[in-house]
Structures are given as C-alpha cells and as structure tokens.
Amino acid sequence: MPDVRSTSFTRRGLLAVGGAIGLGVALTACGDDKGKSTGSAPQGKTGASGKSGPWSFKDDRGTTVKLDALPTRIAAFTGVAAALYDYGIKVDGVFGPTTAKDGKADVQAGDMDVSKLTVFGNKWGQFNVEKYAAFQPQVLISTTYDSTGTLWYVPEESKDQITKLAPSVAVSAYDRQLPQSLQRMWALAESLGGDMKAAKVTAAKKRFEDASARLRAAAKANPGIRVMAGSASDALFYVSGTNLSIDLEYFKALGVNFVEPPESAKKATGGWFESLSWENVDKYKADVIIMDDRTATIQPADITKATWKKLPAVKAGQVISRSPEPILSYDKCVAMVENLAKAIESAKKVA
C-alpha cells in the first residue's frame, strides 16, 4: 500500500489512501482458465471438509475458474487469506500487509500465524514474481475495489506476468453492502472445502446478524448522533463518503447518520472522500469519529495536530476504529459492527 502522504490521485492510488475502499464488478467473462498441479510445493491440506474432485468458481468479474482438483497451493491477498483461514481454508502464499514494523501480524492478517506464510510482498507495489513462480500457485485470489475487476494489491506493472502463472479469482468489495461481500467470501470458502456448518462458523454468522440488529436499534434510538469516517496522514485528513465503501453503505442502510461530503468535494477522488488540511479538520460537525485502522495511516493516539485535539468528539473520547478493508469473514466483521453500535448507544451529543 502506498504512503498516503504522497499518493497521487490515480484510481488505484485513490483506493489505497485512507478512507477510499468500496465494492465492485461485473466484468464480462474472460475464458475458463485451467490450472494443473505440477511438481511438489510447500503446503498442506486446503479444505476442512475432505472435499475432492474438480473445482470451479465463478467470481465477481463473471470469470469462471476451473481446476482438475481442489487447489492446495493458493496465493491470496492477505485479508482474503485471513477470511478463508476463519473458514478452515489453508492459504500459504500471501501478498499485501502481512507484518507490521515490529514483525507482528498486521491488522489485515487476522488470526493467521504470519511466521508460517510465504510473503510475496508486504507493501503496496511490492510483488516478487520470481518467488511467486517458485511457489507454483494453482490459483490467485484477491478482492477488487472497482467496477473493472482490478485485482487488489497486484501491481499494474507486473500483473501480466503474475496472472499468466495461475488463474485468478476476484471477490468484489466495491459499491455494495457488507453482507453481499461476506456472502461471496462464504461461497468461495464453501467451494474450497470449508466446513460451513461448523459451530464456530455458524455462531459467528449469528453474532454478526445480532450485532447488525443492535446497530440498527442504536441508530434508530439516537438519530441525532452524527458519525464521521476519517483517515489521517501527515499532511491531510480524509473524510469518507458513504457511497462505494461496503461497510459505510451497510451502516447507512441500518440507519446510521453519517457526515456526507458533497459530491463536488469528492469529485477529485472519484467520489470516495474529501481531503482536508489539518487547519480545516473541523469543517464537519460529528459526535462520533470512526478512524481508518490500516497501518499505512496515522492512528488517533499518534495524531499530534492541535486542531484534531480540539474536535468535540476527540475531547469527549468518542473516537473508535474502522476497517475500510474488512476481513470478509463473519467472525472478523462482528467487532466493527458491535463497536459502532456501542459508540452510538453511549455517545453524548457534542457537536
């Protein structure tokens, strides 16, 4: 992921900066790619259900990938691998934020043991093609955050080399609501042999549904509480619009009252967000602020700007985290829904 302080406003750059993440798709099908397992590769059993035989999956671009058997050598964007891990699917090769500067797991790695992963690139623009080829991938899986099905974190300059080595699958997280993307990841995990009837899996889905009901009730009971979705860099503060982002679209549908920058202000970023100087960070009134939790952004505790500290929501301690790139398993999405519900339930009207 690029440094949000220096990202130019290209489409992919926009998606990488704070607050710019959303759903996607419908690219007309490219052919049915076939991959075959050759040679020995690192990795073990993929599915938890003992499923075997030919495998196929129609992704959110409309592309159907077919293999002679369930893939056992999967390469995936880190957040996708983390979601599949929650469904019992073993992914050994990843690309995207995997380890933080201290060597610990990045927030997007979920519950995976990052020390056991083969990492092809840990930052935006990084992807070791030679290492990837040696891994002998059978399929590459990523999310997509635009209407053309661009594979998230697969560099534009090397995408042709990368996609020639194995067929790819894209799960859309652009311009739709969170449950749709969760359902698509569920379907993918199920196709790969995940045990979707496991108690842990079904319990997580129920907890997500309960959390959503709680958030809807909280929003209905507190219609005056305004929520602002923000992201911080050294030079700028980004205020996200609710359109395009799967989490914000869903929360809005549940009744959450969001600060909404006008379309004219978001035009320069393709409709994603408005960029504010820190001197103007008080442009919008908000009672609760939800802040981008990705490691490429500055976290609330580390923001030293005086204008930030003067914001009513900050002074009232009404700032919580947000995951613009949520790990698409029900288990990992429960907390962000519950936390927002709790924040709205307990918030004081301060702005």
Rank of each mutant, 00 (worst) to 15 (best):
Q299S: 14
Q299L: 14
D302R: 14
D302Q: 15
D302F: 11
D302S: 15
I303W: 07
T304K: 15
T304D: 13
K305M: 07
K305R: 13
K305G: 03
K305V: 04
A306C: 01
A306Q: 13
A306T: 10
W308V: 02
K309I: 02
K309C: 03
K310P: 07
K310A: 15
K310T: 13
L311D: 09
P312L: 03
P312Y: 04
A313D: 12
A313W: 10
V314S: 10
K315H: 08
K315P: 08
G317Q: 07
G317I: 02
Q318D: 10
Q318K: 11
V319I: 13
V319L: 10
R322E: 12
R322D: 12
S323V: 05
S323T: 13
P326K: 07
P326I: 03
P326E: 06
P326Q: 10
P326D: 08
I327Q: 03
L328D: 06
L328N: 12
Y330R: 08
D331W: 09
D331Y: 14
D331H: 15
C333G: 01
C333Q: 10
V334G: 01
A335C: 01
A335I: 00
M336K: 02
V337W: 01
E338M: 05
E338Y: 00
E338W: 02
E338V: 01
N339T: 04
L340N: 00
L340Y: 00
L340E: 01
L340Q: 00
